[in-house]
Design a protein around this nucleic acid. Structure first.
Length: 476
RNA sequence: GGCGGCAUACCCAAGUGGUUAAGGGAGCGGUCUGCAAAACCGCGAUUCGGCGGUUCAAAUCCGCCUGCCGCCUCCA
Protein backbone atom coordinates (compact mmCIF):
# COMPACT_ATOMS: atom_id res chain seq x y z
CA UNK A 1 0.00 0.00 0.00
CA UNK A 2 1.50 3.26 -1.14
CA UNK A 3 1.61 6.05 1.38
CA UNK A 4 2.47 9.65 0.62
CA UNK A 5 3.13 12.68 2.78
CA UNK A 6 0.49 15.24 1.98
CA UNK A 7 1.40 18.86 2.67
CA UNK A 8 -2.29 19.67 2.94
CA UNK A 9 -2.81 17.46 5.97
CA UNK A 10 0.76 17.28 7.18
CA UNK A 11 0.41 13.52 7.41
CA UNK A 12 1.61 10.46 5.64
CA UNK A 13 -1.56 8.91 4.31
CA UNK A 14 -2.64 6.00 2.09
CA UNK A 15 -2.67 6.94 -1.57
CA UNK A 16 -6.14 6.42 -2.96
CA UNK A 17 -6.68 8.22 -6.25
CA UNK A 18 -10.02 9.86 -6.97
CA UNK A 19 -10.77 7.51 -9.84
CA UNK A 20 -8.40 4.55 -9.77
CA UNK A 21 -6.45 3.34 -11.60
CA UNK A 22 -6.26 6.80 -13.13
CA UNK A 23 -3.89 9.30 -11.57
CA UNK A 24 -3.91 12.92 -12.62
CA UNK A 25 -0.64 14.56 -11.77
CA UNK A 26 0.59 18.11 -12.29
CA UNK A 27 4.02 19.44 -11.42
CA UNK A 28 5.16 23.03 -11.60
CA UNK A 29 7.72 23.42 -14.34
CA UNK A 30 10.20 26.18 -15.07
CA UNK A 31 9.78 29.85 -15.72
CA UNK A 32 11.87 30.11 -18.84
CA UNK A 33 13.96 33.21 -18.25
CA UNK A 34 17.32 31.48 -17.86
CA UNK A 35 19.09 28.16 -17.63
CA UNK A 36 17.69 25.98 -14.91
CA UNK A 37 19.78 25.22 -11.86
CA UNK A 38 20.44 22.00 -10.08
CA UNK A 39 17.53 22.55 -7.69
CA UNK A 40 15.04 22.73 -10.52
CA UNK A 41 16.61 19.61 -11.91
CA UNK A 42 16.30 17.76 -8.63
CA UNK A 43 12.64 18.60 -8.42
CA UNK A 44 11.93 17.34 -11.91
CA UNK A 45 13.92 14.17 -11.29
CA UNK A 46 12.07 13.51 -8.05
CA UNK A 47 8.72 13.76 -9.72
CA UNK A 48 9.92 11.78 -12.73
CA UNK A 49 10.71 8.93 -10.35
CA UNK A 50 7.37 9.29 -8.61
CA UNK A 51 5.58 9.19 -11.93
CA UNK A 52 7.50 6.13 -13.10
CA UNK A 53 6.91 4.34 -9.83
CA UNK A 54 3.17 5.01 -10.03
CA UNK A 55 3.11 3.55 -13.52
CA UNK A 56 5.11 0.54 -12.35
CA UNK A 57 2.56 0.14 -9.57
CA UNK A 58 -0.20 -0.18 -12.12
CA UNK A 59 -1.64 3.32 -12.17
CA UNK A 60 -2.59 5.02 -15.38
CA UNK A 61 -0.87 8.34 -14.96
CA UNK A 62 -1.60 11.49 -16.91
CA UNK A 63 1.34 13.74 -16.24
CA UNK A 64 1.47 17.47 -16.88
CA UNK A 65 4.41 19.83 -16.44
CA UNK A 66 3.81 23.43 -17.40
CA UNK A 67 6.10 25.99 -18.96
CA UNK A 68 5.72 29.53 -17.65
CA UNK A 69 6.59 31.54 -20.73
CA UNK A 70 5.26 34.92 -19.71
CA UNK A 71 6.12 36.75 -16.49
CA UNK A 72 8.04 39.68 -15.03
CA UNK A 73 11.39 37.95 -15.07
CA UNK A 74 11.09 37.10 -18.73
CA UNK A 75 10.11 40.66 -19.56
CA UNK A 76 13.03 41.98 -17.55
CA UNK A 77 15.40 39.68 -19.37
CA UNK A 78 14.00 40.69 -22.73
CA UNK A 79 14.66 44.33 -21.94
CA UNK A 80 18.18 43.53 -20.78
CA UNK A 81 18.99 41.51 -23.84
CA UNK A 82 16.95 43.63 -26.22
CA UNK A 83 15.10 40.59 -27.50
CA UNK A 84 11.44 39.74 -27.76
CA UNK A 85 10.07 38.07 -24.65
CA UNK A 86 8.83 35.31 -26.89
CA UNK A 87 12.31 34.62 -28.18
CA UNK A 88 13.77 34.50 -24.66
CA UNK A 89 11.05 32.09 -23.59
CA UNK A 90 11.49 29.91 -26.64
CA UNK A 91 15.26 29.66 -26.23
CA UNK A 92 15.15 28.71 -22.60
CA UNK A 93 12.30 26.30 -23.15
CA UNK A 94 14.48 24.42 -25.61
CA UNK A 95 17.39 24.57 -23.18
CA UNK A 96 15.15 23.16 -20.47
CA UNK A 97 14.02 20.23 -22.58
CA UNK A 98 17.57 19.48 -23.56
CA UNK A 99 18.66 19.27 -19.93
CA UNK A 100 15.66 17.13 -19.01
CA UNK A 101 16.39 14.73 -21.81
CA UNK A 102 19.99 14.37 -20.70
CA UNK A 103 18.86 13.74 -17.16
CA UNK A 104 16.60 10.95 -18.31
CA UNK A 105 13.46 12.80 -17.29
CA UNK A 106 10.73 11.42 -19.46
CA UNK A 107 8.58 13.96 -21.27
CA UNK A 108 5.25 14.66 -19.67
CA UNK A 109 2.06 13.80 -21.50
CA UNK A 110 1.43 17.54 -21.74
CA UNK A 111 3.78 20.48 -21.51
CA UNK A 112 1.34 23.38 -21.71
CA UNK A 113 2.66 26.89 -22.15
CA UNK A 114 0.96 29.72 -20.32
CA UNK A 115 0.64 31.88 -23.43
CA UNK A 116 -1.39 29.20 -25.16
CA UNK A 117 -4.14 29.39 -22.56
CA UNK A 118 -4.80 33.11 -22.30
CA UNK A 119 -8.48 32.90 -23.32
CA UNK A 120 -9.09 30.18 -20.75
CA UNK A 121 -7.40 32.26 -18.08
CA UNK A 122 -9.54 35.24 -18.97
CA UNK A 123 -12.58 33.02 -18.68
CA UNK A 124 -11.59 31.81 -15.22
CA UNK A 125 -10.83 35.35 -14.05
CA UNK A 126 -14.16 36.58 -15.34
CA UNK A 127 -15.84 33.74 -13.51
CA UNK A 128 -14.09 34.70 -10.27
CA UNK A 129 -15.25 38.30 -10.65
CA UNK A 130 -18.77 37.08 -11.25
CA UNK A 131 -18.67 34.98 -8.11
CA UNK A 132 -17.44 37.90 -6.07
CA UNK A 133 -13.94 36.50 -5.50
CA UNK A 134 -12.15 39.12 -7.56
CA UNK A 135 -12.28 42.83 -8.23
CA UNK A 136 -11.01 45.21 -10.86
CA UNK A 137 -8.84 48.23 -10.09
CA UNK A 138 -7.39 50.95 -12.31
CA UNK A 139 -3.77 50.45 -13.30
CA UNK A 140 -1.96 51.61 -16.41
CA UNK A 141 -3.01 53.61 -19.46
CA UNK A 142 -3.54 50.36 -21.30
CA UNK A 143 -5.73 48.55 -18.87
CA UNK A 144 -6.85 47.57 -15.41
CA UNK A 145 -5.65 45.00 -12.88
CA UNK A 146 -7.78 42.21 -11.54
CA UNK A 147 -7.10 41.09 -7.99
CA UNK A 148 -8.23 38.08 -6.03
CA UNK A 149 -10.10 39.02 -2.87
CA UNK A 150 -8.54 36.66 -0.31
CA UNK A 151 -11.03 37.46 2.40
CA UNK A 152 -13.80 35.92 0.32
CA UNK A 153 -12.17 32.52 0.40
CA UNK A 154 -12.84 31.12 3.85
CA UNK A 155 -10.15 28.47 3.94
CA UNK A 156 -7.35 30.64 2.61
CA UNK A 157 -4.13 29.49 4.24
CA UNK A 158 -5.08 25.87 4.71
CA UNK A 159 -2.16 24.52 2.71
CA UNK A 160 0.59 26.60 4.27
CA UNK A 161 -0.88 26.61 7.76
CA UNK A 162 -1.22 30.36 7.82
CA UNK A 163 -4.22 32.42 8.66
CA UNK A 164 -5.35 35.70 7.21
CA UNK A 165 -4.88 37.78 10.34
CA UNK A 166 -1.29 36.66 10.82
CA UNK A 167 -0.52 37.22 7.19
CA UNK A 168 -1.94 40.70 7.25
CA UNK A 169 0.02 41.61 10.34
CA UNK A 170 3.23 40.21 8.93
CA UNK A 171 2.75 41.63 5.48
CA UNK A 172 5.62 43.63 4.09
CA UNK A 173 5.26 47.09 2.68
CA UNK A 174 2.69 46.88 -0.03
CA UNK A 175 3.22 48.54 -3.36
CA UNK A 176 -0.24 48.27 -4.74
CA UNK A 177 -2.44 50.66 -2.80
CA UNK A 178 -5.46 49.51 -4.75
CA UNK A 179 -5.48 46.20 -2.90
CA UNK A 180 -8.27 45.74 -0.41
CA UNK A 181 -6.06 43.49 1.65
CA UNK A 182 -2.27 43.23 1.46
CA UNK A 183 -2.47 39.53 0.73
CA UNK A 184 -4.75 39.88 -2.26
CA UNK A 185 -2.90 38.78 -5.34
CA UNK A 186 -2.99 39.67 -8.97
CA UNK A 187 -4.97 37.58 -11.46
CA UNK A 188 -4.58 39.90 -14.41
CA UNK A 189 -1.97 42.56 -14.76
CA UNK A 190 -2.35 45.58 -17.05
CA UNK A 191 0.54 46.01 -19.44
CA UNK A 192 2.75 49.00 -19.83
CA UNK A 193 3.49 50.22 -23.33
CA UNK A 194 5.96 47.95 -25.07
CA UNK A 195 5.31 44.96 -22.84
CA UNK A 196 3.78 41.73 -24.11
CA UNK A 197 0.03 42.09 -24.00
CA UNK A 198 -3.23 40.39 -24.75
CA UNK A 199 -6.72 41.82 -25.16
CA UNK A 200 -9.10 41.25 -22.31
CA UNK A 201 -12.29 42.70 -20.85
CA UNK A 202 -9.96 44.78 -18.64
CA UNK A 203 -7.90 46.21 -21.46
CA UNK A 204 -4.45 45.15 -22.62
CA UNK A 205 -2.61 43.01 -20.13
CA UNK A 206 -1.18 39.66 -19.18
CA UNK A 207 -2.03 36.93 -16.71
CA UNK A 208 -0.72 36.73 -13.16
CA UNK A 209 1.49 33.82 -12.30
CA UNK A 210 -0.84 31.76 -10.16
CA UNK A 211 -3.76 31.79 -12.56
CA UNK A 212 -1.88 29.93 -15.28
CA UNK A 213 -1.42 26.74 -13.28
CA UNK A 214 -5.01 26.79 -12.11
CA UNK A 215 -6.24 27.24 -15.64
CA UNK A 216 -4.06 24.60 -17.25
CA UNK A 217 -4.79 22.05 -14.56
CA UNK A 218 -8.52 22.49 -15.04
CA UNK A 219 -8.33 22.61 -18.81
CA UNK A 220 -6.16 19.54 -19.24
CA UNK A 221 -6.90 17.39 -16.21
CA UNK A 222 -10.19 18.64 -14.79
CA UNK A 223 -11.48 20.37 -11.68
CA UNK A 224 -10.07 17.87 -9.21
CA UNK A 225 -6.73 16.14 -9.57
CA UNK A 226 -4.83 13.58 -7.55
CA UNK A 227 -1.31 14.96 -7.24
CA UNK A 228 0.15 18.42 -7.51
CA UNK A 229 3.86 18.77 -6.94
CA UNK A 230 6.61 21.33 -6.74
CA UNK A 231 9.33 22.73 -4.53
CA UNK A 232 8.63 23.62 -0.90
CA UNK A 233 8.95 27.29 -1.68
CA UNK A 234 5.85 27.10 -3.82
CA UNK A 235 3.60 26.15 -0.93
CA UNK A 236 3.11 29.80 -0.15
CA UNK A 237 1.94 31.78 -1.90
CA UNK A 238 1.78 29.99 -5.24
CA UNK A 239 -0.04 26.80 -4.38
CA UNK A 240 -2.11 28.48 -1.71
CA UNK A 241 -3.33 30.90 -4.33
CA UNK A 242 -4.02 28.17 -6.84
CA UNK A 243 -6.33 26.55 -4.32
CA UNK A 244 -8.11 29.83 -3.66
CA UNK A 245 -8.65 30.43 -7.37
CA UNK A 246 -9.85 26.97 -8.26
CA UNK A 247 -11.89 26.13 -5.23
CA UNK A 248 -13.28 29.65 -5.12
CA UNK A 249 -14.58 29.10 -8.60
CA UNK A 250 -15.52 25.42 -8.73
CA UNK A 251 -16.36 24.88 -5.06
CA UNK A 252 -14.82 21.44 -5.46
CA UNK A 253 -11.60 20.09 -3.94
CA UNK A 254 -8.75 21.10 -6.21
CA UNK A 255 -5.98 18.67 -5.32
CA UNK A 256 -6.07 15.55 -3.19
CA UNK A 257 -2.35 15.14 -2.50
CA UNK A 258 0.11 18.00 -2.40
CA UNK A 259 3.71 16.80 -2.69
CA UNK A 260 6.66 19.13 -2.13
CA UNK A 261 10.36 18.48 -2.53
CA UNK A 262 13.13 20.03 -0.43
CA UNK A 263 15.88 22.37 -1.52
CA UNK A 264 19.39 21.69 -2.61
CA UNK A 265 21.87 23.64 -0.57
CA UNK A 266 25.38 24.49 -1.56
CA UNK A 267 27.77 23.65 1.27
CA UNK A 268 24.95 24.26 3.70
CA UNK A 269 23.81 27.54 2.16
CA UNK A 270 20.77 28.28 0.13
CA UNK A 271 21.41 28.77 -3.56
CA UNK A 272 20.81 32.37 -4.37
CA UNK A 273 21.90 34.99 -6.79
CA UNK A 274 23.05 37.30 -4.03
CA UNK A 275 25.40 34.63 -2.69
CA UNK A 276 26.52 33.91 -6.22
CA UNK A 277 26.32 30.17 -5.65
CA UNK A 278 23.82 29.18 -8.29
CA UNK A 279 24.83 25.86 -9.73
CA UNK A 280 23.41 25.39 -13.20
CA UNK A 281 22.21 21.99 -14.32
CA UNK A 282 24.17 22.42 -17.53
CA UNK A 283 27.40 22.87 -15.59
CA UNK A 284 26.64 19.86 -13.45
CA UNK A 285 26.06 17.74 -16.53
CA UNK A 286 29.36 18.87 -17.94
CA UNK A 287 31.13 17.41 -14.92
CA UNK A 288 29.01 14.40 -14.08
CA UNK A 289 27.09 11.70 -15.83
CA UNK A 290 23.31 12.13 -15.63
CA UNK A 291 22.96 8.83 -13.80
CA UNK A 292 25.40 10.04 -11.16
CA UNK A 293 23.39 13.22 -10.68
CA UNK A 294 20.19 11.24 -10.38
CA UNK A 295 21.83 8.88 -7.92
CA UNK A 296 22.90 11.94 -5.93
CA UNK A 297 19.43 13.52 -6.07
CA UNK A 298 17.89 10.28 -4.88
CA UNK A 299 20.41 9.73 -2.10
CA UNK A 300 18.18 11.71 0.26
CA UNK A 301 14.43 11.55 0.66
CA UNK A 302 12.71 13.97 -1.73
CA UNK A 303 11.18 16.04 1.08
CA UNK A 304 14.53 16.58 2.78
CA UNK A 305 17.07 19.19 1.97
CA UNK A 306 20.01 17.91 0.00
CA UNK A 307 23.40 19.34 0.67
CA UNK A 308 25.80 19.64 -2.20
CA UNK A 309 29.51 19.65 -1.67
CA UNK A 310 32.25 18.62 -4.04
CA UNK A 311 33.28 15.76 -1.72
CA UNK A 312 29.75 14.52 -1.32
CA UNK A 313 29.14 14.36 -5.02
CA UNK A 314 32.46 12.65 -5.61
CA UNK A 315 31.54 10.02 -3.03
CA UNK A 316 28.21 9.50 -4.79
CA UNK A 317 30.01 9.18 -8.07
CA UNK A 318 32.21 6.39 -6.74
CA UNK A 319 29.20 4.64 -5.30
CA UNK A 320 27.38 4.76 -8.58
CA UNK A 321 30.40 3.56 -10.53
CA UNK A 322 30.64 0.53 -8.30
CA UNK A 323 26.98 -0.18 -8.92
CA UNK A 324 27.35 0.32 -12.64
CA UNK A 325 30.31 -2.05 -12.76
CA UNK A 326 27.94 -4.79 -11.73
CA UNK A 327 26.13 -4.58 -15.03
CA UNK A 328 29.29 -4.89 -17.01
CA UNK A 329 30.49 -7.83 -14.95
CA UNK A 330 27.23 -9.68 -15.28
CA UNK A 331 26.97 -9.12 -19.01
CA UNK A 332 30.54 -10.28 -19.38
CA UNK A 333 29.69 -13.51 -17.61
CA UNK A 334 26.53 -14.03 -19.63
CA UNK A 335 28.47 -13.64 -22.84
CA UNK A 336 31.18 -16.12 -21.88
CA UNK A 337 31.01 -19.87 -22.36
CA UNK A 338 29.88 -21.63 -19.19
CA UNK A 339 32.10 -23.66 -16.90
CA UNK A 340 30.99 -27.08 -15.73
CA UNK A 341 31.69 -26.97 -12.02
CA UNK A 342 28.93 -26.21 -9.55
CA UNK A 343 28.78 -22.85 -7.82
CA UNK A 344 27.23 -21.83 -4.52
CA UNK A 345 24.29 -19.70 -5.56
CA UNK A 346 22.07 -19.78 -2.50
CA UNK A 347 22.75 -16.20 -1.40
CA UNK A 348 22.19 -14.89 -4.90
CA UNK A 349 18.93 -16.80 -5.20
CA UNK A 350 17.71 -15.26 -1.94
CA UNK A 351 18.81 -11.79 -2.95
CA UNK A 352 16.94 -12.01 -6.25
CA UNK A 353 13.83 -13.24 -4.53
CA UNK A 354 13.69 -10.40 -2.07
CA UNK A 355 14.91 -7.42 -4.06
CA UNK A 356 11.61 -6.43 -5.61
CA UNK A 357 9.67 -6.72 -2.37
CA UNK A 358 12.28 -4.65 -0.57
CA UNK A 359 12.27 -2.06 -3.31
CA UNK A 360 8.48 -1.81 -3.27
CA UNK A 361 8.32 -1.60 0.47
CA UNK A 362 10.75 1.32 0.38
CA UNK A 363 9.03 3.14 -2.47
CA UNK A 364 5.59 2.56 -1.02
CA UNK A 365 6.75 4.45 2.03
CA UNK A 366 6.48 7.93 0.53
CA UNK A 367 8.98 7.13 -2.21
CA UNK A 368 11.91 6.33 0.04
CA UNK A 369 14.59 6.28 -2.64
CA UNK A 370 17.62 5.92 -0.34
CA UNK A 371 16.11 2.74 1.06
CA UNK A 372 15.09 1.54 -2.39
CA UNK A 373 18.61 2.09 -3.64
CA UNK A 374 19.98 0.09 -0.74
CA UNK A 375 17.81 -2.84 -1.83
CA UNK A 376 19.34 -2.68 -5.29
CA UNK A 377 22.84 -2.51 -3.86
CA UNK A 378 22.19 -5.62 -1.80
CA UNK A 379 21.46 -7.59 -4.96
CA UNK A 380 24.31 -5.99 -6.86
CA UNK A 381 26.72 -7.01 -4.13
CA UNK A 382 25.56 -10.64 -4.33
CA UNK A 383 26.05 -10.78 -8.07
CA UNK A 384 29.53 -9.35 -7.75
CA UNK A 385 30.31 -11.86 -5.05
CA UNK A 386 29.46 -14.69 -7.41
CA UNK A 387 31.65 -13.13 -10.05
CA UNK A 388 34.48 -12.17 -7.76
CA UNK A 389 36.74 -15.05 -8.58
CA UNK A 390 36.05 -15.61 -12.23
CA UNK A 391 34.44 -13.97 -15.22
CA UNK A 392 33.12 -17.37 -16.32
CA UNK A 393 30.34 -19.11 -14.48
CA UNK A 394 28.21 -22.24 -14.55
CA UNK A 395 25.01 -22.64 -16.51
CA UNK A 396 22.98 -22.37 -13.32
CA UNK A 397 24.78 -19.20 -12.35
CA UNK A 398 24.17 -17.72 -15.75
CA UNK A 399 20.48 -18.24 -15.37
CA UNK A 400 20.41 -16.56 -11.98
CA UNK A 401 22.63 -13.72 -13.09
CA UNK A 402 20.30 -13.11 -15.99
CA UNK A 403 17.41 -12.87 -13.56
CA UNK A 404 19.38 -10.52 -11.33
CA UNK A 405 20.23 -8.32 -14.27
CA UNK A 406 16.58 -8.10 -15.30
CA UNK A 407 15.55 -7.04 -11.82
CA UNK A 408 18.29 -4.44 -11.59
CA UNK A 409 17.37 -3.03 -14.96
CA UNK A 410 13.67 -2.92 -14.14
CA UNK A 411 13.97 -1.35 -10.71
CA UNK A 412 17.04 0.73 -11.41
CA UNK A 413 15.23 1.98 -14.48
CA UNK A 414 12.49 3.48 -12.33
CA UNK A 415 15.12 5.45 -10.47
CA UNK A 416 16.95 6.16 -13.71
CA UNK A 417 20.33 5.20 -12.36
CA UNK A 418 21.08 2.50 -14.89
CA UNK A 419 22.86 3.29 -18.11
CA UNK A 420 22.62 1.24 -21.26
CA UNK A 421 25.85 2.75 -22.43
CA UNK A 422 28.78 0.37 -22.54
CA UNK A 423 32.32 1.32 -23.28
CA UNK A 424 33.51 -0.64 -26.24
CA UNK A 425 36.96 -2.10 -25.94
CA UNK A 426 39.13 -1.49 -29.02
CA UNK A 427 40.30 -4.64 -30.75
CA UNK A 428 43.90 -3.63 -30.27
CA UNK A 429 43.49 -3.41 -26.52
CA UNK A 430 41.79 -6.77 -26.50
CA UNK A 431 44.66 -8.31 -28.46
CA UNK A 432 47.31 -6.77 -26.26
CA UNK A 433 45.61 -8.09 -23.18
CA UNK A 434 45.34 -11.51 -24.76
CA UNK A 435 49.01 -11.51 -25.69
CA UNK A 436 49.88 -10.56 -22.14
CA UNK A 437 48.38 -13.81 -20.86
CA UNK A 438 51.10 -15.81 -22.57
CA UNK A 439 53.81 -13.42 -21.36
CA UNK A 440 52.67 -14.02 -17.83
CA UNK A 441 52.75 -17.76 -18.38
CA UNK A 442 56.28 -17.40 -19.64
CA UNK A 443 57.04 -15.30 -16.58
CA UNK A 444 57.98 -12.36 -18.77
CA UNK A 445 56.61 -9.98 -16.18
CA UNK A 446 58.50 -6.97 -17.33
CA UNK A 447 56.91 -7.18 -20.77
CA UNK A 448 53.53 -7.89 -19.22
CA UNK A 449 53.79 -4.77 -17.10
CA UNK A 450 54.76 -2.76 -20.14
CA UNK A 451 51.65 -3.94 -21.92
CA UNK A 452 49.56 -2.91 -18.97
CA UNK A 453 51.19 0.51 -18.96
CA UNK A 454 50.63 0.88 -22.66
CA UNK A 455 46.98 -0.06 -22.42
CA UNK A 456 46.64 2.36 -19.55
CA UNK A 457 47.85 5.12 -21.83
CA UNK A 458 45.18 4.08 -24.29
CA UNK A 459 42.63 4.63 -21.58
CA UNK A 460 42.03 1.13 -20.28
CA UNK A 461 42.91 -0.86 -17.21
CA UNK A 462 43.73 -4.54 -17.31
CA UNK A 463 42.75 -6.39 -14.20
CA UNK A 464 43.92 -9.95 -13.69
CA UNK A 465 41.41 -12.43 -12.42
CA UNK A 466 41.77 -16.08 -11.54
CA UNK A 467 42.89 -18.69 -14.00
CA UNK A 468 45.11 -16.38 -16.01
CA UNK A 469 42.06 -14.55 -17.24
CA UNK A 470 41.78 -10.79 -17.42
CA UNK A 471 39.21 -8.06 -17.41
CA UNK A 472 39.43 -4.76 -19.24
CA UNK A 473 37.95 -1.64 -17.72
CA UNK A 474 37.85 1.90 -19.00
CA UNK A 475 40.11 4.24 -17.09
CA UNK A 476 38.05 6.72 -15.10
C1' G B 1 7.49 38.12 15.62
C1' G B 2 4.28 33.91 13.23
C1' C B 3 4.38 28.98 10.88
C1' G B 4 7.20 24.59 9.69
C1' G B 5 11.42 21.28 9.37
C1' C B 6 15.98 19.03 10.89
C1' A B 7 19.98 17.14 14.54
C1' U B 8 21.93 9.10 13.62
C1' A B 9 29.57 6.63 12.91
C1' C B 10 35.08 10.51 9.78
C1' C B 11 31.41 12.09 5.49
C1' C B 12 26.44 11.24 2.92
C1' A B 13 22.00 8.80 4.54
C1' A B 14 17.72 5.15 5.94
C1' G B 15 15.20 3.94 10.35
C1' U B 16 9.03 6.94 13.15
C1' G B 17 7.74 1.73 20.02
C1' G B 18 10.21 -4.42 20.56
C1' U B 19 15.48 -9.60 16.79
C1' U B 20 22.64 -8.02 16.01
C1' A B 21 20.65 0.70 14.32
C1' A B 22 19.95 -0.33 6.34
C1' G B 23 22.93 1.21 2.22
C1' G B 24 26.95 4.19 0.01
C1' G B 25 31.80 6.86 0.40
C1' A B 26 36.39 7.21 3.12
C1' G B 27 39.61 4.37 6.54
C1' C B 28 41.79 -0.08 8.49
C1' G B 29 42.81 -5.45 8.23
C1' G B 30 42.84 -9.53 4.96
C1' U B 31 42.14 -12.56 0.10
C1' C B 32 43.71 -13.21 -4.68
C1' U B 33 48.34 -11.97 -7.36
C1' G B 34 54.95 -12.24 -10.12
C1' C B 35 53.36 -7.33 -9.06
C1' A B 36 49.17 -4.18 -9.20
C1' A B 37 44.11 -3.23 -8.93
C1' A B 38 39.45 1.65 -8.74
C1' A B 39 38.27 -6.49 -7.73
C1' C B 40 36.53 -9.71 -3.48
C1' C B 41 36.01 -10.67 1.94
C1' G B 42 36.04 -8.78 6.90
C1' C B 43 36.05 -4.74 10.69
C1' G B 44 33.64 -0.28 12.20
C1' A B 45 27.77 3.61 16.09
C1' U B 46 26.35 -0.92 23.40
C1' U B 47 24.47 3.92 20.59
C1' C B 48 21.16 7.88 17.86
C1' G B 49 22.49 16.91 19.92
C1' G B 50 21.66 17.66 25.72
C1' C B 51 18.50 16.95 30.10
C1' G B 52 14.13 15.01 32.12
C1' G B 53 9.38 12.15 31.50
C1' U B 54 5.82 8.17 29.63
C1' U B 55 6.40 2.71 28.91
C1' C B 56 7.76 -4.03 30.56
C1' A B 57 10.34 -1.77 26.17
C1' A B 58 12.31 4.72 22.82
C1' A B 59 16.89 6.85 17.97
C1' U B 60 11.61 6.29 17.48
C1' C B 61 6.16 9.19 21.91
C1' C B 62 5.89 13.86 25.40
C1' G B 63 8.29 18.34 27.70
C1' C B 64 12.29 21.63 28.15
C1' C B 65 17.13 23.23 26.40
C1' U B 66 20.99 23.88 22.61
C1' G B 67 22.32 24.26 17.48
C1' C B 68 21.16 24.56 12.20
C1' C B 69 17.69 25.54 8.25
C1' G B 70 13.25 26.88 5.35
C1' C B 71 8.73 29.84 4.50
C1' C B 72 6.09 34.42 5.72
C1' U B 73 8.68 38.82 -0.74
C1' C B 74 10.25 36.41 -6.98
C1' C B 75 12.16 31.42 -6.34
C1' A B 76 12.26 24.10 -7.55
Amino acid sequence: MLKVTNTLTGNKEPFTPINPPEVKMYVCGPTVYGDIHIGNARSQVNFDVIRKYLIYSGYKVTYVVNITDIDDKIIKKSIEEKKEAKEIAENYTQAYFKVMEKLGVQKADFHPKATEFIPDMIGLIAGLIEKGHAYVVPSTDLGKDVLFDSTTFKTYGKLSGKNLEELQEGARVEKNEAKKSPIDFVLWKASKPGEPQWDSPWGKGRPGWHIECSTMVRKILGDSIDIHGGGVDLIFPHHENEIAQCEGFTEKPYVKYWLHNGFIEISGQKMSKSLGNIWKAKAALADYRPEVLRYFFLSAHYRSGLNYDQDILEANKRGWEEFNLTFQRVEEALNSPPVDYPMDLLELRLAIDEVEAKFKEAMDDDFNTPKATAALFDLARETRRVLSQTPRVSVGAKSLLGEALDKLNLLGGILGIVTAERVSIPKEVEELAQARVQMKKDRKFKEADEIRAKVMEMGFIIEDVQGGQFRILPKK
